[in-house]
Amino acid sequence: MKFAPGYRRFAVPAFVGAAIFAFVLPPVGAFLLAFGAFVLWFFRDPERSPPKEGIISPADGRVSVIREEGDRVRIGVFMNVTDVHVNRAPVSGTVREVTHRPGAHKPAFSKDSDKNERVDIVVESEDGEFEISQIAGAFARRIHPYVSAGDELARGERFGHIDFGSRADVLLPPEYGVEDVAVEKGESVTAGESVVARSE
Rank of each mutant, 00 (worst) to 15 (best):
V84G: 02
V84Y: 00
V86H: 01
N87F: 08
N87I: 02
R88N: 04
R88Q: 08
A89W: 02
A89C: 13
P90M: 04
P90F: 05
V91F: 03
S92N: 09
S92E: 15
G93R: 04
G93M: 10
T94Q: 14
T94D: 12
V95Q: 08
V95L: 08
R96C: 01
R96F: 00
R96L: 15
E97G: 02
E97L: 10
E97V: 02
E97Q: 14
V98K: 00
V98R: 03
V98T: 10
T99S: 13
T99I: 14
R101L: 13
R101Q: 12
R101I: 14
P102E: 12
A104D: 14
H105S: 07
K106Y: 15
P107A: 09
A108G: 08
F109G: 00
S110L: 06
S110K: 04
D112M: 12
S113V: 06
D114Y: 11
D114I: 15
D114S: 14
K115C: 03
K115F: 06
K115E: 15
N116D: 14
N116E: 11
N116W: 08
N116H: 12
E117W: 06
R118S: 13
D120V: 10
I121V: 15
I121L: 08
I121K: 05
I121N: 05
V122W: 02
V123L: 11
E124Q: 14
S125Q: 05
D127I: 00
G128S: 12
E129P: 08
E129F: 02
E131V: 15
S133F: 03
S133H: 00
Q134R: 03
Q134I: 10
I135T: 11
I135Y: 01
I135L: 13
A136S: 15
A136K: 02
G137Y: 07
A138N: 10
A138V: 13
F139T: 13
F139I: 15
F139V: 15
F139E: 09
F139Y: 14
F139H: 01
A140E: 03
R141N: 05
R141W: 04
R142C: 02
I143R: 01
I143Y: 05
P145Y: 11
P145G: 07
Y146N: 01
Y146S: 07
Y146M: 03
V147N: 10
A149R: 14
G150Y: 12
G150A: 13
G150T: 12
D151M: 10
D151E: 13
D151H: 11
E152K: 14
E152A: 14
L153K: 03
A154H: 10
E157K: 10
E157N: 04
E157W: 00
F159H: 01
F159G: 05
G160R: 09
H161Y: 09
H161R: 02
F164D: 00
G165D: 15
S166H: 00
R167P: 07
R167W: 06
R167M: 11
R167C: 01
R167Q: 11
A168W: 00
A168L: 06
D169A: 08
D169N: 13
